[in-house]
Amino acid sequence: MPRLRPKGTPGKAGAVRVLVTGGDGFIGQHLLAHLLAGDCDVTATSLAGTPADGTLSRAERGAVEWRRLDVRDGATVAAVVDAARPRRIFHLAGYSSSAEARARPADALEVNGMGTLNVVEAAARARSDVETVLVAGSADAYGRVDDGPIGERTPLRPLSVYGTTKAAQDVIARGAGPALGVNVVVARLFPLVGPGQRPVFVLPSFCRRALAIRRGATDSRLTVGNLDIARDFTDVRDAVRALRALADLDRPPHRAWNVCSGRGTPVRQLLEWVIEVAGIEPEVVRDSTLVRPGEPEAVIGDPGRLSRATGWRAERDLRACARATLDWVASSDAA
């Protein structure tokens, strides 16, 4: 159990002061729990100013200093950074859903691109010394790659609106960092799964529909998109360990780092695990409207750079992650 200090009390001597933008999101809440367990002094932001319900315990939420922030507002970003006086900034705030970015492309580009520039500029002008800004990027920035595992030298050729906004964020972060004298690290996150993820993503979507069938829904069919594609899924709890390890690197030799397992898992396998742990026998029906045109058959990353620099590797079992996600969705629906 992490040692938690009440909000507003002095941090423990030697504790690392960190700021997490978008701390109430899926990745953010898992990262906050990890940082608190590591005895960090944590400030986090959200659009609402208070954390949404999720995976954080009440004690963990209370141990964080929460601030309201829209990263498009450069003046407020600067004020929050000055008040938090962080040594490390984890910039997670932004659009994370392909469907939502497609529905509001201009807004997604402003948030993911200009919002990131605001954070880097605030770090450069901060009255305290910010050692590292870690930006949560996305493997969607790579686009289609047909010749083996994706390494960090692979060109960014996004295929979607979301991927385009994340490619823009990536370029802005890696360019603005050295230009402004800030150590900026971009973590190119491949697809993450785990408890707390919103149902717009594939695994919790499967879980929600499986639970409805288990509870006796009239329609026992489970509609799906393309089950034959493979993605490099990683448990979010492994991923946040990687983010902390990257932020802790002293003078990292690279600006971009893949966070992935190096293994492809078919979406069909995720569905089979969910069906198994839910204990149901649904009729699985393919819905062509759920299939994205031009979607790559496989997106698999190379985590070698990260592993060599930090010793990190993905450790958690994905089948166990599917069970944990199903349990979390069930408890959330019952709340």
Rank of each mutant, 00 (worst) to 15 (best):
M1A: 15
M1K: 15
R3H: 07
P6W: 04
T9L: 12
G11T: 07
G14R: 09
R17Y: 04
G23F: 05
H34Y: 13
P51D: 12
S57A: 13
A59Y: 08
A75E: 06
A75G: 07
V80S: 00
V81D: 01
V81I: 04
A84Y: 01
R85V: 04
R87E: 14
R88F: 13
I89C: 07
F90G: 02
F90W: 08
H91Q: 02
H91L: 00
A101N: 05
R102C: 12
A106C: 12
L109T: 03
N112D: 07
G115H: 00
L117F: 01
A124I: 03
D129W: 10
V130L: 03
T132P: 02
L134I: 01
G137E: 06
A139G: 08
A141F: 08
D147N: 12
I150C: 00
E152P: 07
G163C: 14
K166D: 02
V171P: 04
A176W: 02
A187K: 00
R188N: 10
P191N: 04
G196Q: 01
R198W: 07
V202M: 05
L222Q: 02
V224Q: 01
D228Y: 06
R231P: 00
T234A: 07
D238S: 10
C260R: 01
R263D: 14
R263L: 12
V267Q: 07
Q269C: 08
L270N: 02
E272I: 13
E272L: 14
W273K: 07
G279P: 06
I280R: 11
P282I: 06
L290I: 06
G294E: 08
E295L: 07
E297I: 13
I300P: 09
D302K: 09
P303T: 14
G304W: 15
G311E: 12
W312C: 11
L318T: 11
L326Y: 10
L326T: 06
V329F: 10
S332P: 05
